[in-house]
Amino acid sequence: MRVNYFLKALWIMSMILCSTTIYGQEFANLNFNDSSSGRNIGITYQKYLTNKFSVAGGFKIHINNIKHHDNQWHIYYNRFHAYRLENFIGLQGNLFLDVVSFKNKGKGFIFFDVQTTYARTKGETLIKGWDDNGFLFYTLTTDVRPHALAVEKTIGVGANAAILNNWFLELKAGAGITNYWFDYQDRFPYHLWALTFSSGLSLKCRIK
């Protein structure tokens, strides 16, 4: 079942990419994203379908970062942790609609972003307890959960500006919904969702 999600996502991304290889400007993008599953580096290909509308698709590489316990008791937020090679690799797709034109062909835009992550989660959690004298203490435990699939959908705004004739710097930020599907159905709910935030910094190169 989990493989099916990947195949479906891969198929949709391939269809989007195949349908966009004929006309318009093309960009190669190197992205740094701070998303709800954690931080990642993305490599995407972007194609303009009309003067204002463009699509992008590609891969992302998850950056492992063990989050320590916080007072928000997050299980999945920023907690995804890659243990195997396939856990590092995720898919990323974007839709862009340019709404403002800036100097040197820079744009202000609204975007819709989809990212997938399939990995385990790892976090450190404090469990509250009392000893025999009523003394309050917390016990630190490392919480590693089975594989989960996160699909992050973000809507937001961003802008890019030309550094050189064909090189652009892009900033974007937004909010959205992340859906989580779990492997471990007998212990956890099959599906959960959360409101999440995401931001990104990109270096874009116009290749056509």
């Binding site: 316990h69 307890g129 203490f137 016990t139 630190l140």
Partner: peptide, 18 residues
């Protein structure tokens, strides 16, 4: 700040005072 001060082991786990 809110810190967790380590106070030793409790049933095999590290115990902290908040």
């Amino acid at each position: 700040s809110t810190d967790d001060i380590y106070i030793g082991l409790f049933m095999g786990d590290s115990a902290y005072v908040f």
